[in-house]
Amino acid sequence: MESSSPSVPFPLLQTPVESNYRACTIPYRFPSDNPRKATDVEIQWIDVFLNSVPSFRQRAENDTTVIDAAEKAEKFAQRYTEILEDLKKNPESHGGPPDGILLCRLREIVLRELGFRDIFKKVKDEENAKAISLFEGVVKLNDHIEDEGKRVENLVRGILAGNIFDLGSAQLAEVFARDGMSFLASCQNLLSRPWVIDDLDTFKGKWLNKSWKKAIIFVDNSGADIILGILPFARELLRRGTQVVLAANELPSINDVTYLELHNIISKLKDEKGYLAGVDMSGLLVANSGNDLPVIDLTNVSPELAYLAADADLVLLEGMGRAIETNLYAQMKCDSVKVGMVKHPEVAQFLGGRLYDCVFKYNEVVN
């Protein structure tokens, strides 16, 4: 089952004619390439998805909501592998030529056809529970930073540290399964600045001298990412009087948080007065983005999100899928931030950075 929502363009995206919008950041092929022969970049990225098949098969095997899960997980692995190998031989097969969006889409289609709806649910629930128990302490650490510029930087570092909980990366899935991940250790171990794209100092300056009336934040993963990274940042915006809309997936994909899960998380974090660690939450909304993948094409969002975004003056896209592998160069009609951690060596190579490097791209629109 795919998203049931009709799709409309995100209203703050400069029209494709104005900005030549392409959702995928990395060009997999050019018009001059032979349409019947896979490019080197296509093969490289097909291999990235091939390398992730074992971890997805293992998650599917352990899905207790699906009858004969082990057998169906093996069918998933075989079928998706065959599709990827087909694309290597003929890039026009299976709706190609392939890019990051199509490769994600095909994986989800195969999983859903076999009855797998949310193979990461168990680990998402576990990580959400851990992060909820740590939320108050993380917020207190931020609140104790009196210098506002330093506090903002600490909040951004929290977003980046939380974003490492990404089971779509084969390497990180292996590390997570073996060692788990510590949010505070991740904060301390971020690669040193300057990052591969680093507009943080400019953003800090604008933060101190500018007030946004409404922010749309496209969120990414469950666990530390949303709870210890994004929510403290959103809370700080709320405290400044900014209305905040958190846009989350309609349907599960990898360990991304869905809008229904996000509603549940917030209900557990807020107190009886409806406050989030002492901050009024009446200005916080959770929206269904209409998306069902770990990447996003901003020409296809839900009408609900489009309506809520119409008068926003800040857009933040978070995570490798939404802010780096797609939409890094998307031009907005308002101020925008793209923030995430680089978790594929292929992306690091494209950007000229390091594996686990950070991206903080800020664009101000002067009216």
Results as ranks from 00 to 15, higher is better:
N62V: 07
R235G: 02
Q171S: 14
R112P: 07
E74Q: 11
F233M: 05
T65G: 06
V295C: 14
S289L: 10
A73S: 07
D68S: 11
V139L: 08
H94P: 00
I145V: 15
S186F: 12
V366N: 15
I132H: 07
D256E: 13
I265G: 01
L190Q: 03
A247C: 08
V123S: 12
A60E: 04
K338V: 03
V365M: 14
D166V: 02
P6M: 10
S186H: 14
L328G: 05
D143I: 04
I230V: 14
K130A: 08
E304L: 12
N128W: 05
S192L: 12
T39D: 04
E2T: 08
L308I: 04
T64Y: 12
V315H: 03
F135N: 07
V152H: 05
N291W: 06
D271T: 06
I109N: 00
V8T: 09
L285F: 10
Q78C: 13
L12R: 02
A170Y: 07
I197P: 00
G353Q: 00
A170C: 04
K150D: 15
S222H: 04
Q58V: 11
L167M: 12
A234D: 08
Q243F: 01
A60I: 13
F76L: 06
S192A: 14
R157Y: 08
Q78R: 15
L284S: 03
L231M: 09
L284A: 06
P6N: 06
L208E: 13
F76M: 06
W195V: 13
A73Q: 02
I216S: 03
A309R: 10
D118F: 02
E61M: 13
A234T: 11
I216H: 04
R105F: 13
L208I: 05
L251G: 00
A309H: 10
N221H: 10
N288S: 06
K273W: 12
D86I: 08
D311Q: 12
P252M: 06
L285Q: 09
A330T: 04
K213C: 10
H344C: 05
P232R: 02
T64E: 14
F116R: 02
A323Y: 10
K140Q: 13
S55A: 12
T258H: 02
P303E: 11
N367V: 11
K333A: 09
V219I: 05
I46W: 01
E71T: 15
A277Y: 11
D292L: 00
D198H: 02
E250G: 08
T242M: 05
K124S: 07
R178P: 01
V245R: 04
A173R: 11
L200H: 02
G223C: 02
G274F: 05
I227R: 05
V244F: 05
S222I: 09
F203H: 08
M320F: 10
D220C: 03
Q171N: 14
W195G: 03
S186D: 13
D198I: 09
K75Q: 14
P35A: 02
Q349V: 05
G319T: 06
K72Y: 07
Y275A: 09
V152N: 01
G241T: 06
R322K: 12
N363V: 15
G115D: 03
V366E: 15
V175R: 14
F49H: 10
H263T: 11
E148H: 06
R117S: 07
K204P: 07
F165Q: 02
L13E: 10
F183C: 03
K333P: 01
I159C: 08
